[in-house]
Amino acid sequence: MTALRARRQDNAGYLFLLPWFGGILFTVGPFLASLYLAFTDYDLLTPPRWAGLANFRAMLDDGRLHQSLQVTFTYTLVSVPLSLAVALGVAMLLDRGVRGLAIYRSIYYLPSLLGGSVAIVMLWRYIFGYQGIVNDFLAWFGIQGPGWNSDPRFALSTLILLHVWTFGAPMVIFLAGLRQIPAMYYEAAAMDGASPWRQFRSITLPLLSPIIFFNLVQSLIASFQTFTQGYVISNGTGGPAESTLFYNLYLYQKGFAEFDMGYASSMAWLLLIIIAGFTAINFLAARYWVFYDN
């Protein structure tokens, strides 16, 4: 009887894992193939030829690759802390027991679903174009603003803004984390006369640190892999003047537009190493600032 129930539970478990097994099947193959292709000269249309380390050597003096690394690092280092801060801030506001929380939560989550869609491109042009809303506003003060999307000095910042705007996913997780913090801590602190700032630093931050850590790792990985937003806003070019040439966008250009899939594969492995490195550093650093209640 119990054995039967246990087996049923097992079955249910496997059933839930089914999509993962399906996914793995289609990931492992390409994964191994790209490892092999990274060491070949492969133009997509004719069979790959072994090239040893030639692709990796070519990376050393590929100016566009260096530019794409710079763009991706700048983007990550600015947008990840910024969007996490906004996500946490909004989550704390919502946690105050606003009426209609479910509605607010949905509204703030919505941009996360829209981030890479074509509608956003239109919206962004409408807002940040040379003749867009922002410049219309600046014109009231007699200022002629630049083309925020078309000027290489500003194009990346509008993408960072887009990223910050899609703070919904970490916010929902923060909100769940905040709900887990027992109210009695705050009550006790308030009784001892602790200011809200003090409460935030001494109660919220430490107890929320595992959640912050989780969000940080997730956001960093996602940020290094940014593709869609850069692709749709720059129409796949990484322009103006390569100022939004994300690493993955360049990888895509190399593989599918310039028929250099061998090089693109080696780039993918370099990115894997970079992300693994950052994640490892994160886990090491976590020992010093992440606090587990139990």
Binding site: Y130, P146, G147, N149, S150, D151, I233, G239
Partner: peptide, 12 residues
Amino acid sequence: IPPAGFIDQNNG
């Protein structure tokens, strides 16, 4: 022709 940045090259 318009000043720099007026035209978005990637306008489609």
